[in-house]
Design a protein around this nucleic acid. Sequence first.
DNA 1: AGACTTTTATTTGTCTGACAATTGATTTTT
DNA 2: AAAAATCAATTGTCAGACAAATAAAAGTCT
Lengths: 247, 247
Amino acid sequence: MKKSSNHSANPRGDLSAQIAASIRDAIIAGELIVDDRLPSETELSEQFEVSRPTVREALKRLAAQALIRTQRGATGGAFVNHIKYAEAYDQQITTSTLLLSMNDISIVTACEARYALERACTPLSAARRSADHLATMRAEMHRQSQPGLSDEAFCASDVAFHRALVDGAQNPVMSYQLAGAVEAMQPLMNMITFTARSRERIVELHGQIADALEAQNGEDADAALIALEAYTVSLAKDVLEARKARG
Amino acid sequence: MKKSSNHSANPRGDLSAQIAASIRDAIIAGELIVDDRLPSETELSEQFEVSRPTVREALKRLAAQALIRTQRGATGGAFVNHIKYAEAYDQQITTSTLLLSMNDISIVTACEARYALERACTPLSAARRSADHLATMRAEMHRQSQPGLSDEAFCASDVAFHRALVDGAQNPVMSYQLAGAVEAMQPLMNMITFTARSRERIVELHGQIADALEAQNGEDADAALIALEAYTVSLAKDVLEARKARG
DNA sequence: AGACTTTTATTTGTCTGACAATTGATTTTT
DNA sequence: AAAAATCAATTGTCAGACAAATAAAAGTCT
């Protein structure tokens, strides 16, 4: 790692960014595998010919992406982390949420993506859903029917319902990919005020979905999802127009 | 330096992790909006009652997630970053790739997810694809037909083809979500040796897809994708069995 | 010998203080 | 007025130190 005396700005960024990229590449390329221990911070600072704070900044970058974990103590150090779905979920949701809020995506576009992807799960979910998934869906529907539920709690329950639908496909890769699409919508949905009547309609459609999945009827579930998308979009449009008229 | 004397381990993690989480929450909650400037590192270290290196580690964590960018100089500092799709792509692909390789996901599972999601794009892509998307697909098919192309280059071209298909839906949210599903497959696909005959078959199916999209016929494109998935899975199984027989 | 305690070595976490590099703003000079 | 020099603020990097955690090693007692 020579560093070749860089006077002009480095395309890879700061030293800590370069070092982080170097280690990240090694992990992706499989040169470092799960639970491998990286050299100690002192050793790394010697190898890369930088100071320990710089190495530490690099390691924190990697830790932020859950690529490594660190442990104190005699046998401690930085270890290549086994990325679990739960950790990847969180990251994906954070990124997706900010992406939606920062690029003024319309509700129509976001809904289109979300429901298209969700509908991709329904045939699989209809075929494979367990009793557990169905029970979760029914439980969330029950919660959604309770009066006095706040809009936020209603949205959270809505997410849980759809998550059960997705998880029913029993494909962890799909569950992971869909996490961003479904959960990132929540801030957008939170803008909507759900009246008692609209909640009733949504729960009704949820019931159709749950019934169809229970009957392993993918087509009916698909149709209900299409109706749900249309209804959600129309609700959102009403809110936007009302807001425009007022403001 | 009060810090309320922490003797037991903090649930939020290290100081730098806590500070990073605190700032991240502020960004997600909208208290800090795009292009807002954070206080200088010195000011932050005073506010959080920690040293500057600790603040810097926190900022590097956020930079690794593309939540902030930093700039040197008199008017420099850390700014809330406008997350663009390109940056989010990279992160998603890195995470997805590692997730697949570390959780020994079978090729069948990964393919199932990928093609299910991709098929969710086809109706939209058939309706909206531009001449540009079609041209990209044809160009990649032409590249895939050239003899002497390495397996890796063939895979890369395959990804480019499918990316054009997805982008044809003209929905940036879908493009983003699909990036992980499509690109993360590449390392898995790179294990496959593509014979001249199998390449021919794949290009043929690609042709069917391109033709169908050009004719705005979503159903034919869907059928071709199903065939492509089945063919890919059978190729992968052959490779695995051959490897098992040898090893 | 075996179980318990103490010590020790290693490593990450944090702090302090310093200097270099960058860069926009300010002042001076032409 | 334009160009050049200076300045000030800020991030980037470094060196060295100490605290805290932690497991292994050494020592001690029964």
